[in-house]
């Protein structure tokens, strides 16, 4: 692929990262279609996520952002289209399949269990058992160990107001719940982390922590998809920005080549991103 091809297909290539974008995407989707009865959720969407990048996804309400990432993470099965991870086709039937393939997700509705405590939520569906026959024969959970490690994960995120890992999630504030969901996605060192509006309910300080965490994950080589309506956040952390519009991809830009105003104009359909101006 020549450099100009890359620019058309992937938006601008950030300076000094040309080598990354000539590599294989860690996660890639082609012509995803999903319909809900007569409602068209996705109308042939393409997406590429490269190793070690933050790909932001922006778009109006109902543009299909959440639907897109649900298709990528096994929560929905697309009607047609294909998804590959590092070039290999994948067919996720359920969220657990995507997780096992190395994709962690914070869904917009958080998907935490209110009645369970924080530690149980963090380790839900990846519980650790006790050592020895208690674990292998009786299948007893290592509650203490999980609680301790959950505490560390939440501490790493810097959420000081959450102290007791045995507290039921339903007793937490909205922002604290969101922090638990984010900690759950970040704590297990997956290849890809998908965050659907992870800062929507967070205060200024907590939002900053989540953005810092996103940068840290990237620096460790993980790839992140970040959905957000907060343009300053997007322009702060994103390497590239996928613009979703009316169930399709309107284009891909970078914070270097387009400013927020231009991004929003494309998002709302005020301007079109022509193939040549993609870079």
């Amino acid at each position: 692929m020549s450099a100009s091809d890359l620019e058309v297909a992937y938006g601008g290539v950030p300076a000094g990262k040309e080598d990354v974008y000539s590599k294989q995407p860690v996660l890639s989707a082609r012509k995803l279609v999903i319909t809900f009865g007569r409602v068209v959720g996705l109308d042939g969407v393409d997406l590429d996520l490269y190793p070690g990048e933050v790909l932001a996804v922006i778009g109006d309400n109902g543009a299909g952002k959440s639907t897109l990432i649900k298709c990528l993470t096994g929560a929905y099965v697309p009607d047609s289209g294909e998804i590959t991870m590092s070039g290999q086709p994948v067919h996720f039937k359920k969220p657990q399949d995507a997780r096992e393939a190395g994709i962690e997700t914070v869904y917009q509705q958080l998907a935490v269990i209110p009645a369970l405590d924080i530690a149980s939520n963090l380790y839900l569906a990846r519980e650790e058992r006790r050592k020895g026959p208690l674990g292998s024969v009786l299948r007893m959970l290592d509650k203490k160990g999980m609680e301790r490690r959950a505490g560390d994960a939440v501490q790493n995120l810097g959420i000081q107001t959450i102290q007791n890992m045995g507290q039921a999630v339903e007793t937490l504030s909205g922002g604290q719940r969101q922090a638990v969901a984010v900690a759950r996605a970040a704590a297990f060192g997956s290849k890809v982390v998908v965050l659907d509006e992870p800062t929507a309910a967070l205060g200024v300080k907590e939002s900053g922590m989540v953005l810092d965490m996103v940068k840290q994950l990237r620096d460790k080589g993980q790839s992140i998809i970040l959905i957000s309506h907060n343009m300053p956040h997007v322009w702060e952390v994103a390497d590239r920005i996928h613009i979703q519009r009316l169930g399709g991809r309107a284009g891909v830009i970078t914070p270097q080549t387009h400013d927020m105003g231009e991004g929003v104009a494309i998002m709302t359909g005020a301007t079109k991103l022509s193939q040549d101006s993609a870079a």
Binding site: A75, K94, P95, Q96, R99, T105, Y107, Q109, L110, A111, V112, I113, N121, L124, A125, R126
Partner: peptide
């Protein structure tokens, strides 16, 4: 639904 999204079968 949250249980399913969290990976519970």
């Amino acid at each position: 639904e949250s249980a399913r999204l969290s990976g519970v079968p």
